[in-house]
Simulated assay, not measured.
Amino acid sequence: MSRFDETVEEMLAHIDDLGGPRSYGNYPAGWGWAMGAPFQYYKQTASHLGGVRNDLVISWPSRIKDVGKVRTQFHFVSDIVPTILEATGIKAPETLEGVQQKPLDGTSMTYSFDNARAPSHRRTQVFETMQNLAIYHDGWWANTTPLEAPWDFFKPDQKTGGDNREWQLYDLRKDYAQAVDLSKREPTKLKEMQALFWSEAKANNILPIHAPWEGPKGRPTALPPGKSFTFKGPISRLPTTAAPNMIGKSFTIVTDVDLSGAQASGVIVTHGGRFGGYALYLDKGVPVFHYNALGTEQYNMRAAAPLAPGRHRVRVTFQIEKPVAGSGGEFRMALDGQDAASVHAKRTIATRNSLREGLDIGQDTLTPVTDAYSIENSGLQGRVNDVTFTLGD
Rank of each mutant, 00 (worst) to 15 (best):
V269A: 06
P220E: 05
N132L: 04
K249D: 09
A243W: 03
D16K: 09
T370Y: 10
F318K: 04
S378E: 14
Q338V: 15
K174T: 05
G226Y: 10
T145E: 07
N205L: 12
M35P: 00
F153D: 02
D55H: 07
H290C: 06
A279M: 15
F229W: 12
M1V: 05
V57R: 13
Y291F: 14
G218T: 15
G19Y: 08
Y291A: 04
H290N: 13
D256Y: 09
G233R: 09
F275I: 03
N300F: 02
A29L: 01
H121R: 15
Y27L: 13
I349K: 00
Y291R: 07
A304H: 05
S327I: 07
L307H: 07
H312M: 07
Q363H: 08
L307E: 09
A211D: 15
A262S: 11
P119W: 11
A149D: 09
D79P: 02
A303R: 11
Y291W: 12
L169E: 06
K174N: 05
H210F: 13
V70K: 11
G98D: 00
N205V: 04
A262Y: 03
T107G: 00
K284G: 12
N377G: 13
A345W: 12
A372Y: 14
G266A: 11
A341R: 12
R274F: 01
E94Q: 00
F289D: 13
T72Y: 11
K69Q: 15
P150H: 04
P323C: 06
G139S: 02
K346S: 11
G32L: 10
P323I: 04
F39H: 09
T129L: 09
D55Q: 09
G310N: 15
A149C: 01
N132R: 08
L85D: 07
G89F: 07
I253N: 02
I90Q: 09
A87E: 06
T270F: 02
V343R: 07
H271I: 06
T95R: 01
N115M: 05
S228V: 13
S59F: 12
G36S: 15
G233W: 08
S199P: 03
F231E: 03
R3H: 02
G98N: 00
V70H: 07
G30F: 10
Q194H: 10
G106E: 00
E200L: 14
T7R: 03
W31A: 01
H137K: 13
T88S: 07
G358E: 11
A211E: 14
K155W: 09
G328I: 02
L359A: 02
W167G: 01
F275A: 01
Y41E: 10
Y170G: 00
P38K: 06
I58L: 15
N245Q: 12
F197W: 15
A340S: 14
F76L: 03
A142D: 01
G98S: 00
R165V: 07
V288W: 15
Q131T: 14
G233V: 09
P156R: 11
G382I: 14
N132A: 02
P234R: 08
R165C: 03
G285N: 15
A118L: 05
L207C: 05
P208G: 11
V8S: 01
T255P: 10
A201Q: 13
I206V: 14
A92P: 00
Y291K: 06
G25A: 08
L335G: 02
T252H: 04
N377M: 10
V70G: 00
R165I: 06
P82C: 08
I135Q: 03
A305Y: 12
G295V: 11
G273H: 09
H137E: 13
A243E: 04
V384N: 08
F39N: 02
E97M: 04
R3G: 00
